[in-house]
Amino acid sequence: MAIVVGYAIAVLGAVLAYQFGEGKSKKRKYRIWGFALMVSISPALSFAIGLTYAAIVGSGWASMIMWILFPIGFIVGLVMLFVGIFKKEATEEDL
């Protein structure tokens, strides 16, 4: 049951990020998706994947893979957030 909750939270975070980013500028979308990845998607997805892998392998220690997956997802989200914050908006002169 906990595995399903983890996947559900990750999907819900992705759906909400999509809804909040719809119709926004590219810079704003980067910020929304970076925040969503760091706060909801990465922790829930790493937890669910870790438990799924542990159930498949049959060892509780195998769930420690979430200690590897979470920082990777968090750093990807942090980079996306920083891109959204520090990216320069394209003007008509640049095009």
Rank of each mutant, 00 (worst) to 15 (best):
F20Q: 12
V4N: 09
V76G: 01
V57N: 05
Y18W: 10
M1E: 13
A44I: 03
I68M: 09
V79F: 13
S40D: 09
L95V: 14
V39L: 13
M38K: 04
G58I: 00
V11E: 01
F82E: 13
I85N: 08
D94E: 11
I3F: 02
S25T: 14
W67I: 13
E22C: 11
L51E: 06
Y30H: 11
V11H: 03
W33L: 06
I65G: 01
G77F: 04
Y7P: 01
V79N: 10
F86I: 13
G23A: 07
W67S: 11
Y53S: 07
L37W: 06
I56V: 08
I75K: 13
V4H: 08
R31S: 14
S42N: 09
L81R: 04
E22L: 14
K88F: 15
K27P: 04
L12T: 08
K27V: 12
A36K: 00
W61G: 15
A10M: 08
S63P: 07
F47S: 01
F35V: 15
P71G: 06
L37S: 02
I68W: 06
E92F: 10
S46T: 05
I41M: 06
S63W: 07
V76M: 10
A48Q: 01
L69D: 05
L69S: 06
M38W: 03
M64Y: 14
G13P: 01
L45S: 02
